[in-house]
Simulated assay, not measured.
Amino acid sequence: MDRLPNPTWLRSFESAARHLNFTTTARELGLTQTAVSLHIRSLEAELGQKLFTRNARRLELTELGQSYSLTVRRSLADIALSTNSLFGPASRQTLTIRAAISTATYWIAAELPDFSLQHPEIPVRLVSHIWNDSIAPGDVDVEIRLGYGDWPGVISEKLTEEKLVPVSRAGGGLPTCNNLQKGPLIHILGYEDNWARYFQANNIAPPDQAPQHSVDTSVAALQLVMAGAGYATILERFARNVIRQGAPLEIKGPAIPFAQSHYLISTQGAAQPTAAAGLFCAWLRDRIALDAAV
């Protein structure tokens, strides 16, 4: 076979010839700047010619480097074209995110368009559920849970500090949270004490009557509220997202601290997260920090 330099060196050279910057090349190829520089030096040593002129502030192709870059670029493009034509485009790895149905509906789904705008190359599947054990851990890339962070067998990273607010249908005529005790009140199973905690925090005597409705998710609770069936307490994060999207809903009192938080979950001893999962988690932390700063 005729003389052929290391393909990895050629790939680094082609990218560096386009960008004329080793740092940008390293970012594009997922390498370190040191690795890119080593590839170029190795290729130059193999060819016995300088391909770049390294100045203090900029990188320039030599005449030989300019000519060679055109050939290398065309050759790599031909290989990519042939590969796609014969074997189809590279399959994209779908990022699967698992969250409770209320978290998925009223928080993550509302934020996902921004992630997809920043990373259009990553297809996303959002899996909602009610109970945490409804899907096997190996079926998801990122899991987000609401709780105290004390689940056995997992590593939890605290993401948020949550607050609780009372909500009513928009235009319902309730002027202050003091009137909420008149009901009707909607309870969410598993969080039946939220109303008692809310009234206590605001020095309001709790009502004596039983709740008019009890449901198992914040999704169902908000549907009842918007239908005019009563009032519910939900996370302020959820309420503001729903209102921002135009739902006929109003917050009817000050927020109080909520004991539970949202956590990123990883299984002890599990494999390293995928690159897509890492990008999503970094993006989510940035979004939370941005919301907290507002």
Rank of each mutant, 00 (worst) to 15 (best):
A35F: 03
A16D: 00
L47P: 05
L29G: 02
F13E: 00
G30D: 06
A45V: 14
T8W: 14
L86N: 07
P7M: 11
Q66S: 10
T34N: 12
V36Y: 03
H19W: 06
T34G: 14
A56E: 13
H39R: 07
V36M: 08
T53R: 15
Q49L: 14
S67K: 11
F13Y: 05
K50V: 04
R3S: 14
R11E: 11
E14N: 06
S69W: 00
N55A: 14
S69L: 01
L70R: 10
L61N: 01
E46A: 15
A77K: 05
A26R: 01
A45T: 15
R41Y: 02
A35Q: 04
N84R: 12
L29M: 06
R3H: 12
F13D: 00
D2L: 11
G30A: 06
T23H: 12
A35I: 02
T25L: 11
E44W: 07
W9L: 01
T62F: 02
L76C: 04
T32Y: 04
A17H: 00
E60G: 07
A45D: 15
R18Q: 13
R27T: 06
E44C: 09
R54S: 11
T83G: 06
A80Q: 10
R11M: 13
L43H: 02
R57G: 11
L76N: 03
L81H: 13
L51H: 03
S67I: 08
F52C: 03
Q49Y: 10
L4P: 00
L43N: 00
R18V: 02
E63D: 15
L70C: 03
L64Q: 13
A35T: 10
Q49H: 12
R11P: 01
Q33K: 09
L29N: 01
F52R: 01
P7S: 10
S12M: 09
D78P: 04
L4Y: 09
S69I: 02
S42G: 11
H39K: 09
E44A: 06
L20H: 07
T23D: 07
R57E: 14
L59D: 05
W9T: 00
E28L: 10
R11W: 08
A26E: 00
L51P: 01
E14I: 03
H19D: 15
S12W: 00
F22D: 01
W9C: 03
P5G: 05
T62L: 07
D2M: 10
D2C: 07
T62Y: 06
S15N: 08
L86E: 05
I79F: 10
L76E: 09
G48M: 09
A80T: 04
R74M: 13
V72G: 04
S69G: 03
F22G: 02
T8H: 11
S82R: 12
R41V: 07
